[in-house]
Every structure is written in structure tokens, then in C-alpha cells.
Design a protein around this nucleic acid. Structure first.
Lengths: 140, 140
DNA sequence: AATGAAATGATATACTATTGCATCGCTTTG
DNA sequence: CAAAGCGATGCAATAGTATATCATTTCATT
């Protein structure tokens, strides 16, 4: 597996007041947060914020391996692992939308190898699993 | 955006002119198509179409296991496997956006079991893998 | 033909994200 | 210090994605 860094020579992270703030909010949320919710929260502390600023910051943090975008929810999630050192599985319940980041390199490897066997070599990236959890399945 | 559960006792598929048309377009495209692109194509043949109709049809087809939504692209993809009989892996290249549906029940099972071992039991659902393919990796 | 349910039409609106350009603030360098 | 350069942010507009609501049509069944 030739995976490791997705942004060559991982540029150093430059924090600013806003970036730090965004990351803090995401870490404290301990779950996915939507961009416009973030925007509202930020406005409590920092007026004059617009969507583009928020999205720029989210992109930056994602590119530097500090957060993930959860496509299934259009939301953003602080990483639990080390920056750039992981290939996470993000598991999302379609019912309650609870989300969990799984850092299991064995599992990642086994997926990676199977895909290689099928003629697909993915370098870097994340894996998102959408499903219905036990609890939500029972309620249905 | 609330994708429905696939747990409802698979109701029989009722085709209409439009549903058939949408499915045909997706099958012929042999790749992910965006809702509004679909809308345009449909308007060639069927005036008076609005987004809501298109989305309703897409939801219907997805709930009946005939298509998948590709979250990473906000796009829709005709299934290659049997309706409801598969748990696909959808592999998307972030570079060229080429998409491939992998139907490998062994692989699905191994992921499923690993997740169970971690205390997560997912019932139904799909798995989406985002990455960069060989070709795009080289160009970078 | 009457009826009831499902599908579609139509309009409006909500939600998500990007573009382009101006400005601010910091570092580098003359 | 001043000027230049550059990354970050402000700001306005707009693009792109999706849903809500209510009206109307379609169609199988009677």
C-alpha cells in the first residue's frame, strides 16, 4: 500500500483566531456540524462572518487533515486520529444520523487490498458507510 | 433530504412513463448523473417537469433498490446488481469523478463483521469510498 | 361514469456552496 | 520606515441542490 499523505509534503498548519474557533467548536460538538449551524455559532463570537469564510476555513481544515466532511449529511466532523495518519471509516446512521469515526487500519487495509485485487488502487481518501443502526432498525 | 429506509417490505415496483424514462437515462449514462442534468435531459422529451418531480422519482427508484445516490457527487447511479440483493461499494475518484459500483459480498461481509466486532451493527445501507485513482494521482 | 389512491404539476422557498473582488494585517525586504 | 507581497478575511452576488405545499391529473377498480 502506497498510501500516506494526500497533500504532498503536508504543509504546516497555520492557525488563526477563526480557524482555531471553528476547530474548537467541532471538537466540542463531538459530532458532525453543518456549515450554516457553525456560522450561527460563530456569529455569537465573531460578527461579520459570511458563508464563504466558513467554507474556506472548513476546506482548509479538511485539507490539513484536521476534520472530515461527511457527505451523507453535508456536515463536518473533527478528526479523532492524528492528522494525515489515518484512513478513517465514517459510519453514519440514516435514521438518527449518529456518526462515528472508526480508525482501524487493519480494516482499512483489508478493504484496500480487496479493491486492488479488483483492479482499483485508491491512494488516500476516506470511506463512508451509510446504514441503519440497531436502535433505529427496531423503531421502524 | 431524508433517504428512506430500505427495510420496508420491498413493495413491488410500479413503473410509469417518467420513472421508466429516468431509469433508462441513468442506465444509458452508465455513470452518475446529477438531478438537474437529468431534469434537462427529461425536458427534451417531457415538458413541464420541475425539480420536485425529478427528486420524487429519484427517491422512489432509490427506495426500490434500482439506483443509488452518490453522496460524494450529489448524483444518482443506476444499480448494476439485483434490486435489494446487494450491498454495494461505490468507489469515487475525487479527481476524475469516475465512479464504479463494486458488488462483492465477501468484501461487504468482512466490513460488516469488523464493524460488529467494534460494537456497530448496520442493517442495510451502502458504502462509499472516496479517493484518488492511479491515473489522477500521477497527474498531480 | 364514479371514486379513491398514487403520481405529477406548479409555485415558492429552504438549504448548501462558490465566485469575484475589495480590504486588512502581517512578513519580508529595500 | 516604506513599499511590496501575500495569505486571510469581508462582502455581495449568485449558483447549485433539495423540499414543502397544495392543486390537478392519471389510472385501476368498481
Amino acid at each position: 500500500m502506497k498510501s500516506q499523505s494526500q497533500t504532498e509534503a503536508a504543509s504546516p498548519v497555520t492557525f488563526t483566531r477563526l480557524r482555531r474557533l471553528v476547530l474548537e467548536i467541532l471538537v466540542q460538538a463531538a459530532g458532525p456540524v453543518k456549515a450554516y449551524d457553525l456560522l450561527e455559532k460563530l456569529r455569537d463570537r465573531s460578527q461579520r462572518l459570511t458563508p464563504s469564510t466558513v467554507y474556506r476555513i472548513l476546506d482548509y481544515l479538511e485539507n490539513h487533515g484536521l476534520i472530515h466532511r461527511v457527505d451523507a449529511l453535508n456536515a463536518y466532523l473533527a478528526c479523532t486520529g492524528q492528522p494525515h495518519s489515518h484512513h478513517p471509516l465514517i459510519v453514519v446512521c440514516s435514521g438518527c444520523q449518529k456518526t462515528r469515526e472508526i480508525n482501524d487500519q487493519d480494516l482499512y487495509q483489508s478493504i484496500f487490498r480487496k479493491l486492488e485485487a479488483l483492479g482499483l488502487t485508491l491512494t488516500s481518501g476516506s470511506i463512508e458507510i451509510k446504514g441503519v443502526c440497531d436502535r433505529c432498525a427496531q423503531e421502524a
